[in-house]
Design a protein around this nucleic acid. Sequence first.
DNA 1: CATGAATGAGAATTCATTCAT
DNA 2: GATGAATGAATTCTCATTCAT
Lengths: 203, 203, 203, 203
Amino acid sequence: MQAMSLTERARREQIVSAAIEVLARNGHAATTFTRIARHAGLSSTGVISYHFADKQDLLAEVLTTTARVAGGHMGPRIEAASGHRGRLRARIESNVELLAVAPSHVRALREVLAASASGSAPGVEGDPAGLVSRVSTLEEGLRDGQRDGAFGAFDPAVMALAVTGAVDALVAVPLADPDEVRHRARELADVFDRATAPVRDPR
Amino acid sequence: MQAMSLTERARREQIVSAAIEVLARNGHAATTFTRIARHAGLSSTGVISYHFADKQDLLAEVLTTTARVAGGHMGPRIEAASGHRGRLRARIESNVELLAVAPSHVRALREVLAASASGSAPGVEGDPAGLVSRVSTLEEGLRDGQRDGAFGAFDPAVMALAVTGAVDALVAVPLADPDEVRHRARELADVFDRATAPVRDPR
Amino acid sequence: MQAMSLTERARREQIVSAAIEVLARNGHAATTFTRIARHAGLSSTGVISYHFADKQDLLAEVLTTTARVAGGHMGPRIEAASGHRGRLRARIESNVELLAVAPSHVRALREVLAASASGSAPGVEGDPAGLVSRVSTLEEGLRDGQRDGAFGAFDPAVMALAVTGAVDALVAVPLADPDEVRHRARELADVFDRATAPVRDPR
Amino acid sequence: MQAMSLTERARREQIVSAAIEVLARNGHAATTFTRIARHAGLSSTGVISYHFADKQDLLAEVLTTTARVAGGHMGPRIEAASGHRGRLRARIESNVELLAVAPSHVRALREVLAASASGSAPGVEGDPAGLVSRVSTLEEGLRDGQRDGAFGAFDPAVMALAVTGAVDALVAVPLADPDEVRHRARELADVFDRATAPVRDPR
DNA sequence: CATGAATGAGAATTCATTCAT
DNA sequence: GATGAATGAATTCTCATTCAT
């Protein structure tokens, strides 16, 4: 594999950045090369095609980038948490709070994944950022917690989907006020804290 | 206003039916008149334009139809349930179980609403089926339940979004086995039953 | 040739009437069967096609009708006038005044003739109403007047075109006030009265 | 705003040129992208859409171009003339003579303006070439001339419409022979010279 | 006689992609 | 390396006309 030149890398980042912006504002279906180029201040769509093999290729990099940003925020928060319950709470809270930190990234990510799932976009092959599989990662974590007695009895597959879906739903609503975002993050974490609690009546 | 002839109504239903099928299989962005016509066994897209003023018009009828089907399944189930908790459970279970009863309708509905929300598709004006507002309906129900002491303390707006998002996430995964669908429906209802439970009586 | 039934004739008139209205309001290019049908309160365009062989056929009848109306107004006025100059004045004045009497007919006529001349509409074959030839009729009248010494020296072909064009230009401007219409009619007649006057300095 | 490249400008001119040709020959309603492309020797209508935002955009440039050509011919002629009467004559003659100089431009201009006026075509917004307003310009000139005693008494609004309409009518008739065109130009100027003459001195 | 339903050609426009320079 | 110019397939929609009933 050939290393990428500096200018090459800069251009790609510029384009990816514009694509994220457009995805967040206009949605996947309205994210065209023309609009991305205009947003990036480029004069033609040819530039994009020159730097990316495909639209799919561009979207894949959008996915990688947004995932990296998300990971940079969520990862440390999760690792700093202690215990299975703490980690679940940290995951949910930090995910929702992303909406205040990097709203465009969150919405762009949502758009790409949603389109990819719907099949309308050929989507992104091979789950390049490991993000499509965030459900299964979560599921595994829940299963581990159950084994250790930190969680009660429930179907981890269902719970993982529920958590993911609930986060996505909250994140889909644009919110300006960071305080409100933090409040919702905590609330949602509470919801699943109760839902995953071990049996409460040990009598 | 003129009543609709029998053949007219039949053709419209045939087209809406095909549109639902295509939406479910290929997603909103890939749902073109050409594909719908081919699926319905029509020779040209002109037939569709003859019966529907607009693509939006067609999608609106898709929404009405899928909403009617969903309502026909969920409505009686919810009404038959007793108590706030029972009704919440009934709503969640019957919604998820729709996946076994009318999978295409559920996915088509999801696609249209998602596209409409993303703003990419002008979608459907005015929430014709009252479905876009299912979140607020749910929120109201939760608030009522809290007032009556059936539910614990939580932000009803957040909970409504969580429930809706979780259901959508489960429904997005295609499932063949009806037993598995029923299992998941019950599981998800359990999740939110625990999450909304009134404060545990520490007796 | 087969005589036309009463209802047949009534239907045709109804359709022609609607066509005139639409032509006057929306212009030739926007005059479609659909719009005509809607305006006439008909449920389908098929009715129009049933009664008229062609769009051309319909427009030809529009031409005949509007020409009949115009003739009914202008004919008597011209015949009542005396002398070549009087007849020219009567022709111009009565033509412009039509705008106050039957504005839709005048504008419809203009639209059809303009489109027909432009070649965009296959137009009307054979000058069915003798109206396309109004220029040559006028030209002949001018030539006669010159022979009798009523008019001065000018190229009658040019003058005929000038009169026709000038009238059309005045008639193209919608005017509500009948007094203003009458004023303009007289003014325009004056214009061509002076322009066609015999040499004025007989010294 | 970005300057236009050489090839860009050339292509646009080629397309505008073809559009003018088609407008002149087939009229506004029959002026489609397909026909223009075929006439310009282009393989697809996409080229046109690439260079012009809109059909309206293309027609606006047609207007600008034809207006420039017309202005280039008429402007110097009018400025070179002396006195109000001289200028009116120069305006009429040079306008009619355009038919010999640039027949396609004249007819194309007529078509676009006619369609725009009829309202059928959205036509061109804002009178970009100042041409729609040629009537009011003329009217003003006439009014000035009356004030200076160069013209007799008449309604300048009516006269301006008459002149414009008469010129248009002459110009609508295709004429091959340049001598005949010149003759008609002079004749029409004579017509309005007499029509606008100050009251005859009855000495 | 009449009509509602269909047809199919053709319209403008958009889009991702390619390619000569 | 990079870009502006083109391409051509695809999309929604409109229209005059036809035809079975």
